[in-house]
Design a protein around this nucleic acid. Sequence first.
DNA 1: GCAAAATACTTTAAGCCTAAAATATCCCCG
DNA 2: CGGGGATATTTTAGGCTTAAAGTATTTTGC
Lengths: 170, 170
Amino acid sequence: MQERAAPLDAETKVAERPHDHKDELRLWLRLFACKEVIEGEVRRRLRHSFDVTLPRFDLMAQLYRAPKAMTLGELSQRMMVSNGNVTGLVDRLLEQGLISRRPSPKDRRAQLVSLTAEGRRFFRAMARANGDWIADMLTDLSGDEIETLMRLLAKTKASARKAIGNGVPR
Amino acid sequence: MQERAAPLDAETKVAERPHDHKDELRLWLRLFACKEVIEGEVRRRLRHSFDVTLPRFDLMAQLYRAPKAMTLGELSQRMMVSNGNVTGLVDRLLEQGLISRRPSPKDRRAQLVSLTAEGRRFFRAMARANGDWIADMLTDLSGDEIETLMRLLAKTKASARKAIGNGVPR
DNA sequence: GCAAAATACTTTAAGCCTAAAATATCCCCG
DNA sequence: CGGGGATATTTTAGGCTTAAAGTATTTTGC
């Protein structure tokens, strides 16, 4: 169960500070908007340049970086999405010939998935383009600014996780 | 058409700087992860506490803040989603009795949508809870840190928009 | 050894989302 | 006035996503 400030404490805090939750909310909205702009463009370019969706790109990235073939379960864990979701993505990538699938020799329930030769080539091209796009979109940020953002976003994530109660798996 | 550095320039840049696009990519991934954590929890809590999805909450927020009833087209613009998407969301909110819909007196093509009395009450409760959740999740950030993040995220968004070519509508 | 629990995966039902085509209406210009 | 382009909305086809239920296989504990 997550611990949250008792109602009374929360009200005290609000009373002490002239601004209630406004700043936090505005920050959240800005973070969200920022991510929407970048992600929207990445999706658009992946679709137009490679006819690939972001989820498929993500799945291929997992396979590309993995030393060995992975099961659907491992993929679903690493991508932090549901099992059924991975089933569908794998089906569609198989149709495109970008990955291959074979039964696990150790466990007859499991399937091992890996990139085909074409899948590897294709992924390398996409990853290179993706890196260029991101660098291009963030080009106005200095090294210092990137570093500051990295640090503060890490802190933000940690704060959120603490409030959610991650660390203890739910 | 967007102007991008020619391949040769890009390689020169990489050669000059020991780090290629790595920092930008890592920043993007961190921004994304940060947003996932917060958004995931907001969705979960909206569903468990109010049996409402985030898109429906967003739509109601638009109606709540608007001085007058809005058409589907205005909603779709403000929410930055497609027309067909709004059609579906409005259908489902109508079923729940949270919004109402009437033909525009000025334009027989258009429909005017607004919150019902129950919709307003319900939205106020959700918005209050949402503010509390966000403030709670961002509680470890100081006022200064929030301010810095606001500024740098604004700069990030502006940089991305410039690279995308927003400003000129596509 | 074998029943029960756990695990790997698929299926299903429902919702969100988009682009593109279809419909209905409005508005302008000749 | 009347045709043609613009606009408001819906529909359609396809993909992503989840939770929950179902299937097959493995593992565990007695």
